[in-house]
Nucleic acid binder design. Structure first.
Lengths: 344, 344
DNA sequence: CTGAAAGCGCTTACAG
DNA sequence: CTGAAAGCGCTTACAG
């Protein structure tokens, strides 16, 4: 009873545009023009309206605005591996850039309740959706979004803009570095299957670069399991590696999290990094820099990529800008986890 | 030109409730009742309407629903330290529980563009907001949200429900464990200032427990710097620690990230964990388990807390449920980063 | 430069 | 059990 009365009071206190207009002695349309920064309002009138807005503590209702403009000013980012900090780190950059242009961004963690979340994405009429997943969406979902006019990023070249990384140089540099510091037996632990491995060029480049130098043994191990989590995959692959290729001297992993898992397994087996084995990750997640040993990895400029994604999406939404395909040159970041092969 | 035509076509294709109603030969109100699961619709009519919905691929427009119900079915989580995985880990649990009840949740990373993001929170009429920050909101923000009827969690006892952790037992257990395995010189590196240190009971309990045992030296170091990030603070405090208290044998940190930073500094100074110094974190972030050495820490049940938060918020929104204050008993998780003091 | 009016896509009493 | 109607809070042509 008490709660209901309170609720009603607070409802009454929610001030709407009508009251602002009445109080300011103008029409609702004019208030709208002021709020949306239209230049057609006389400065003194504009200031007056602004004052009334402040006085009344008027807060516009986005839902109403969304309805009439059929824009949500809302961008989604679809991720799958929620435990991998990398996704958050670039999502954060997307958000930071988007908010400056008046867009909010939400993360959709599609590793659980996917159908419910896809429903939310459609029903909220998201203006844009960025794909950070490598796995598939259900039949028709993408088509439905397209029909709604949702701007799609990183789905595929047909669907919309693509922002990808070029790992070739970095991979080449790291392979050569390993060779130069004396390693002759190296392995790659891939969180993808064989076709995924070469999809972003890392695999192709790894095979190419290792082929060009007289390594003694080069192996690639695959474990493509969406639901295991990168760290688990890293551990599993490392176990296989030690069984099959016990005298390996240096290991590449698909990402930093997998490298951390790999490190764990190596350490359990009494192998020390980098004394016994050199270790290389990818992504340069924030934590890699301060791990002990700090992790050698491959980095892209997350801030730049995040900003580019946000700005491109918004340009496409607002100005019908063309879709783009931007490739970022990844860089090798050399840290403690690799070391020269001791002469024996 | 071409783009405009396409846009118009796709706009035309966006099917609304009216078309569903017409096609099904019922009124819009009935379609609404079907969609919202009202029991008052005759089963065969309901099935028929459902079929038409599927056929037309009708997707309800949340913005319209929000406007008329003055509910957004949208919950926010305010975080500050975006680089700390802990927040994401419990946010994910909140989200998982919320989506099952039809609510979406969005993260608001308030370490940047705070005013813009607070504006978004108000204008989107979020139904609920969970606070994960320890720093302050601008004057009036909380009051404004309250006035809007936003359900507030973890702000303060007056403002709404509280979900807190009780670290007392875990802290006591860890202090005693350190003593029992031979440590006599211990320190606490606090990411809070002196008053914050005892706010969640960890500080009080640390002082109490260390006072009850014949330790040789016990020190607490403070560094309260919102913008540094826990890992940096851990590093800075560890430097101070080594200068001031070089023969320290065991160290507590405010959280796992700070402990990782501390480990980094210790390692740079040639100190090994746990051989030379035992190290303890707090939060049990996912990565702590697989670090090398794995991190001794203090854990709460993130899933349970996340579920409780989501369900309480939604119960408050929908059923006017009373606010609650739930305290979770944290548990010590003993791993490799602590070890017996070697006899010398 | 400004106001009156129509309409965005829903939900919810209210009759019947 | 169902339909007609009002209205949620905005924006946007359109007159003037």
């Amino acid at each position: 009873m008490r709660a209901n009365i309170l609720k009603q009071i607070s409802e009454d206190m929610m001030v709407t545009r009508r009251e602002v207009a009445r109080m300011a002695g103008v029409s609702e349309g004019t208030v709208s023009n002021v709020i949306n920064g239209k230049t057609c309002v006389k400065p003194e009138k504009r200031d007056h309206v602004m004052n009334v807005i402040r006085q009344l503590k008027y807060i516009p209702n986005q839902a109403a605005r969304n309805l009439v403009t059929s824009r949500s000013s809302h961008i989604g980012i679809a991720i799958y591996e929620t435990t991998n900090p990398y996704h958050m780190e670039v999502a954060r950059m997307v958000e930071e850039a988007a908010i400056k242009r008046g867009y909010m961004v939400s993360l959709f963690m599609l590793d659980n309740n996917m159908p419910d979340k896809l429903k939310v994405i459609s029903e909220r009429r998201l203006d844009g959706l960025v794909n950070f997943m490598t796995n598939l969406y259900p039949e028709g979902f993408i088509a439905d979004l397209k029909e709604q006019g949702t701007v799609l990023v990183n789905f595929d070249d047909d669907a919309g803009s693509m922002f990808t990384q070029n790992y070739m140089n970095a991979t080449k540099e790291l392979v050569e570095t390993l060779y130069n510091i004396g390693h002759r037996k190296i392995a790659y632990l891939s969180n993808f299957d064989e076709s995924g491995f070469s999809a972003d060029g890392r695999g192709r480049q790894f095979i190419k670069s290792t082929g060009e130098l007289p390594f003694e043994r080069v192996e690639i191990y695959y474990n493509h399991d969406f639901d295991a989590g990168s760290d688990r995959i890293g551990q599993t692959l490392a176990k296989k590696l030690l069984e099959d290729f016990g005298d390996v001297e240096a290991v590449f992993c698909t990402n930093d999290l997998a490298a951390i898992g790999c490190l764990r397994t190596l350490s359990d087996a009494g192998k020390r990094v980098p004394r016994d084995i050199s270790l290389i990750g990818c992504d340069d997640i924030n934590i890699s820099r301060i791990l002990t040993p700090s992790l050698t990895t491959i980095a892209i400029d997350k801030r730049r990529q995040g900003e580019d994604i946000a700005n491109n999406i918004i340009d496409m939404i607002e100005k019908n800008a063309p879709k783009v395909h931007i490739e970022y040159l990844a860089k090798a970041v050399i840290r403690e986890s690799i070391a020269p092969r001791p002469k024996n």
